[in-house]
Design a protein around this nucleic acid. Sequence first.
DNA 1: GTTCGGATCTC
DNA 2: ATCGTAG
DNA 3: CTACGATGAGATCCGAAC
Length: 513
Amino acid sequence: MRLAEVVATSAVVASTRSRKAKVAALAQALARAEPDEIETVTAYLSGALRQRRVGVGWRSLMELPEPAGSPSLGVAEVHDRLEEISRFTGAGSQAARSAAVAELFGRATAEEQSWLRGAITGELRQGASDALVQDAVAAAAGVTVAQVRRAAMFAGATLPVAVAALSGGAAALAEFRLQVGRPVLPMLASSAPDLDGAWEKLGGGRAPLAVDHKLDGIRIQAHKDGDRVLLVTRSLEDITDRLPDVVAVVRALPAERVVLDGEALALGPDGRPRPFQETASLTSTGATAAAAVPRPGAITPYFFDLLLRDDADLLDAPASERWRHLEELVPTAQRVPRLLTDDAEAARAFLAGAIAAGQEGVVVKSTDAPYAAGRRGSAWVKVKPVHTLDLVVLAVERGSGRRRGWLSNIHLGARDPETGGFVMLGKTFKGMTDEMLAWQTERFEELATERDDWVVHVRPEQVVEIAFDGIQRSTRYPGGVALRFARVLRYRDDKTAGEADTIDTVRSFLTAG
DNA sequence: GTTCGGATCTC
DNA sequence: ATCGTAG
DNA sequence: CTACGATGAGATCCGAAC
């Protein structure tokens, strides 16, 4: 198949908001793919490449060669070229990479160039990605969407499933099942503003619910097959070599085969969790580096679910049954603290205990739900305490895409009583309704002092109430601290900038946790 | 050898 | 990661 | 209820420039 066909399909998909029309266009293109191109075409229709990383980003694609007059690129050839580009390493690799990129783009038409750029940077914005392509695979192969999704959950990816569906139909899809050593997409949680909200979402405690500590580390899925251990992250990246401590724990479990879900984090000498930054740092340096450098604490795993034990596939079993196996197999010290209760009061106390222990919050779980891999199901509801501050807007960035024409991303400052000025702490674009965007665009145009292509600086007069999850140490911002997951709650016209929170108040969150 | 920018991963 | 919008 | 899109901070790794 020619790349031009994919590009034309992408244009059709982007031009309509109707999901049915998007799926129909994607299915038509899929049906035209040659058997040996199905993986590439499926990936490209979802706007993704098959390479996990190419080593080329938006910056390298700012300047492109003259586009070709007519299309000539084939889909398979593009994939081969990108594979070569992704493999360059060592001195001179950047030059070789950029020469190869120029060569590839020089053979693309203007439309193909812009599609390629979008696919490489992940900013195609055609309003369809994996989920709609799965629908299209089902339509093109004459199978149900549920069959495709189920297979994709076991495969941890859509591409092999597309190949199976289009070449072998429903029978081929039925071959996919949970296997040790083959990562599945992790189940995700929805969220609630507080414990009562979570309680209500899960039926108000008519049946007992589980309340798990929510640990602030990185998600790990552990596979054990005899002595062999595989650890993957939430995005299914293999991190086995970076977590030798966790590998040892998993290898020692008294089962031949096991698949576990959990969280790994760094502990201090006092047994309390270290800040997330430390966990991230320790898990991203390799095993040798970590062993060579004195560490304040090892990376410790805490498991909260068990998907497979020896020959029992427990994905569809009720949570209570999975947890029973988990408790039999994994020592308490390596399990996430959990309370089973039908009493909201007890659950609130458990949440308070989690916070006091330095954890992030809790996840409330139904005891009878199956493990819904890859879905943000309603069977798990997370609750994290929210902090708020009244900050001052220092500047605004121009929006793009859907927010083009609006002033969107605001720069946030805290008051500095010593200088009488303001210290920047971060930015946010979250929590703004279209109505707020319209209002703030007008407001900040009024307050504008200087403007460039991207940023409009404003007089520091507008106070905004910001919600956030916590404070991190920062080398980027002058105050030495930054907000984690800041979002706008509301603009405050009842407060002046002189009444905004101070940088000292912000810093006090660092020690208070 | 040190510093800086880009890419890619975590949350 | 969070959040708002649209289907 | 689900999927999508617009974007946040920090850390490391690698290569290039100084």
